[in-house]
């Protein structure tokens, strides 16, 4: 037994990891059962920032990520857009990452065009698209949007976009919402937008790798943070609690939020993070188990060497 684990081929570990993620995905996919979420204060802060703004406020949504981080960030991006749309805010989408516009397109296609058919492009939401230069872009648009964004991503001139008429720079925004996978992202928004212009409010959703690094900015420079997939799941739970009756499936019946078993009757696209917490739980347990077994082997080995 000891020798088996000591000489374990790493491919067995890979197989275990595969099963720990695959089996829960299939079980949750087939049964629809998920774990309940209890949102933490930081996630509540994100929710409150968007929720407490009066309807019609201007929200800049910068989607600074690409498909490589979609697993963690797409659920946040979806929920941010849903929450802003449901609350009636004006949404200005942009991206500091080259592939960010695709992420914005996905959100507009799947969320706004499908579930908010009344919203008009140019009046309720606009896709400003991508500009290169990373923090260099923030540095320009913090004082002047039109220098870089003379048109939106469709080629409509700035002056012909009704919701842009009273917008000159990022400083005119009531809130910045950032979905960030790394450089350039939340850190740069904090450095070049919120810190020099402390009147600006900002919340962010970011990857697990970044989240711990952003805590020193909270709460003075960053007013709310969704960290990794767990943050996404908690935020989903909060938005569902507030707007679940609007997003529930048609077959949901009297109680739109949950059925008799306590499972959500919400369209799957709005519970992506909550669903993902199943494989997450099993895989985390595997990680802990692997570390413990690895250490047992190490200590047994050390004791044996000591005896020799």
């Amino acid at each position: 037994m000891y020798e088996f684990f000591r000489d374990l081929d790493r491919r067995w570990i890979f197989l275990m990891m595969f099963l720990c993620v695959a089996v829960p995905i299939i079980i949750i996919g087939a049964t629809g059962k998920t774990f309940p979420e209890e949102p933490t204060q930081l996630v509540r802060a994100v929710f409150d920032e968007i929720e407490n703004l009066p309807s019609g406020s201007k929200v800049l949504l910068s989607y600074d990520y690409d498909p490589a981080s979609e697993g963690e960030l797409a659920p946040m991006a979806t929920m941010f857009a849903y929450h802003c749309a449901a609350k009636g805010h004006k949404m200005y989408f942009m991206a500091l990452w080259p592939v960010g516009p695709q992420m914005v397109d996905d959100t507009i296609e799947n969320i706004i065009k499908k579930d908010f058919k009344d919203l008009k492009y140019g009046e309720d939401y606009v896709n400003l698209g991508y500009k290169s230069g990373y923090e260099g872009v923030i540095k320009v648009i913090i004082t002047d949007f039109t220098e870089l964004y003379s048109t939106d991503t469709r080629g409509t001139p700035w002056s012909a976009i009704p919701m842009c008429h009273d917008v000159n720079s990022v400083q005119d925004m009531d809130l910045i919402v950032n979905v960030s996978a790394g450089y350039a992202g939340t850190k740069e928004w904090v450095q070049y937008a919120v810190t020099p212009y402390p009147k600006l409010r900002m919340v962010a959703g970011c990857t697990g790798v970044q989240a711990p690094l952003l805590y020193p900015y909270i709460p003075q420079q960053l007013h709310g943070l969704l960290g990794a997939i767990k943050g996404a799941a908690e935020y989903e739970a909060l938005v569902i609690e507030a707007y679940g009756d609007k997003m529930a499936r048609k077959d949901a019946g009297d109680n739109p939020l949950t059925d008799d078993n306590g499972d959500y009757l919400i369209p799957g696209k709005y519970t992506e993070g909550i669903r993902r917490m199943g494989p997450q739980l099993v895989a985390h347990l595997l990680m802990i188990l692997l570390i413990i077994v690895g250490n047992v082997i190490y200590f047994v080995e050390r004791r044996r060497e000591g005896r020799r």
Binding site: I13, M16, M17, P67, E70, V99, N295
Partner: peptide
């Protein structure tokens, strides 16, 4: 092409972090 390729490249890290946890983290 772009999406599955780049996303899967990063998905591989889950396996390597597991293997590293087993081999390298010693108390």
């Amino acid at each position: 092409a772009f999406k599955p390729l780049t996303a899967t490249m990063f998905a591989m890290l889950a396996f390597y972090v597991a293997s590293a946890a087993f081999r390298a983290f010693r108390a």
